[in-house]
Simulated assay, not measured.
Amino acid sequence: MSGGAETAPGGTGVVTGGAETASSGTGVVTGEWRPALAPAIILRHDPVRGADLLVMPERIVLLKGEAAAVLRLCDGARTVAEIVGELRDGFPGAPVADDVAEFLGQVRAEGWVR
């Protein structure tokens, strides 16, 4: 991983090495979409760094905040609405619906979820 880190647009909880990640937010994230990690991407916890990582060919993305909690629920079986419901239970009072939809739109635009 290269030196320096930056946060993806909107403070979504994704940090990557290198220049800021641009995201156009392609497509509308609906409650019926069943997001799953793209086939070449692995979500892994690095105990040495004490951090969650997305490991993909030729790139590692350091996740921060609750980004890993959202991505762990992206198993292709749960809808966005179900993911929001589970996170709402775990984070009462947080604006989960808006934040999760925005985050999933950004990681979908990056190609990290399908």
Rank of each mutant, 00 (worst) to 15 (best):
E32R: 14
A81T: 11
L71Y: 01
M56K: 13
Q106V: 12
E58P: 04
A51F: 05
G93T: 06
E102I: 09
A40N: 15
F91H: 10
L63D: 04
K64V: 15
R72L: 13
V61R: 00
P39I: 06
S24C: 14
G27H: 05
G4K: 03
A101N: 08
A94M: 11
G105D: 00
A51V: 09
V80S: 01
P57T: 05
L54F: 06
P95A: 03
L73M: 14
L104E: 00
G93D: 09
A40H: 14
R114Y: 04
L73H: 07
V113H: 00
G10F: 01
L87I: 04
D98I: 07
H45E: 10
A77V: 15
G111T: 00
I60N: 08
E110V: 04
T26V: 12
G50Q: 12
E6D: 15
L71K: 03
E20T: 11
V107W: 00
P35E: 06
C74W: 04
V29K: 06
G85K: 11
G76Y: 06
R108V: 03
E66D: 12
L53A: 05
D46Y: 05
E110N: 07
F103T: 05
L62M: 12
T16L: 07
V80N: 01
R34Y: 02
A67N: 03
D52P: 07
M1Q: 10
A94G: 06
I41F: 03
L104D: 01
P9M: 08
L37Q: 01
V70M: 07
E6H: 13
L37K: 04
L104P: 00
R114C: 07
A40M: 10
G85F: 06
